[in-house]
Amino acid sequence: MTVTAFTIGYEVVMLREQQFLKQMTFVVKNYRLVIYSKIITHFILLISTVTILVALSTVLFQIPFINLLLFSYGAVLLPFLPLSFIFLVLNVLPMHTENLQPIITVTTMAMLFFINFLNLFEPTSTLMTIINPMNFALETGKIWTQLFLDGVQINIFAVIITMILYFVIGSIALNKTRIVANFRM
């Protein structure tokens, strides 16, 4: 789900580099419609993927379909919109898509390191939830899991603060979205 949200930001950068955002601004007068449509299509794709996986799991493991579907939708879709907004920051950066990919790969490895090793010492770190989108997705999933299972340690304060922060940063990035590509000299 974090990868799906990242893909939205990355695809917006690709659309900018291919001059599509500039063309759509000329046609529909608002580049935000293109970005919102990217978010909606990825949301529909995520819903259909979760539904297929739940259906297969129900058949293979004899788990009640409705319970698993509600659990999966909440755990996967609850953090999707804030994560989609935070990754819109990628379009504000003055980079080309081919330069962005190695940076994202290294950043992803660092986030995985932090989520695996630092969480051993402080599993519900507020700072870690705010800084690391993968940790945010994990903590949001834990909140949803708490509704179904007892004994899951959660930090709801960190998740709410992170959601608000991600929406604010994403909204600022959406307003500062660059529609013209970075040309090479």
Score class of each variant (00 low, 15 high):
Lys29Pro: 03
Ile115Tyr: 03
Phe71Pro: 02
Tyr73Thr: 00
Leu127Thr: 01
Val76Asp: 00
Phe117Gly: 00
Leu21Tyr: 05
Tyr31Gly: 08
Tyr36Gly: 09
Val28Asn: 13
Tyr10Cys: 07
Ile35Asp: 09
Leu112Trp: 02
Ile66Thr: 12
Thr105Gln: 12
Ser125Thr: 04
Thr108Gln: 05
Leu127Lys: 09
Thr25Phe: 12
Phe117Val: 04
Leu127His: 06
Phe80Tyr: 14
Leu118His: 00
Ile8Asp: 14
Tyr10Arg: 08
Phe20Cys: 09
Leu45Arg: 15
Met109Gln: 04
Gln101Tyr: 15
Asn99Pro: 06
Val89Ile: 14
Lys22Gly: 04
Ile63Thr: 08
Leu93Met: 08
Phe114Lys: 00
Tyr31Asn: 13
Pro102Asp: 14
Ile86Asp: 06
Gln62His: 14
Val54Thr: 05
Pro79Tyr: 04
Ser48Cys: 05
Tyr10Ile: 05
Lys22Phe: 02
Thr41Ala: 06
Pro79Gly: 03
Ser72Gly: 02
Gln62Pro: 03
Pro123Glu: 01
Val106Asn: 07
Phe121Ser: 14
Gln23His: 12
His42Asn: 15
Tyr31Thr: 11
Leu69Lys: 06
Asn116Ala: 01
Leu81Val: 02
Phe87Cys: 08
Asn116Tyr: 02
Gln18Cys: 11
Lys38Ile: 01
Lys22Leu: 06
Leu78Asn: 03
Val54Ser: 01
Lys22Arg: 12
Ser48His: 00
Phe80Trp: 08
Leu78Pro: 09
Lys38Ala: 03
Leu127Gly: 09
Leu21Ser: 12
Leu33Val: 10
Leu118Thr: 00
Leu15Glu: 12
Leu21Cys: 13
Phe61Met: 15
Leu69Pro: 04
Ile86Met: 08
Leu83Trp: 02
Thr124His: 07
Leu33Gln: 13
Leu120Gly: 10
Asn116Lys: 07
Met24Trp: 10
Tyr10His: 11
Thr7Ile: 09
Leu93Ser: 11
Phe65Tyr: 14
Leu70Lys: 09
Ser72Cys: 09
Phe114Gly: 01
Phe117Trp: 01
Ile47Lys: 01
Met109Leu: 02
Phe6His: 10
Ile44Met: 10
Leu46Met: 07
Gly9Asn: 13
Thr4Pro: 03
Gln23Val: 01
Ala75Cys: 12
Gln101Cys: 10
Leu15His: 12
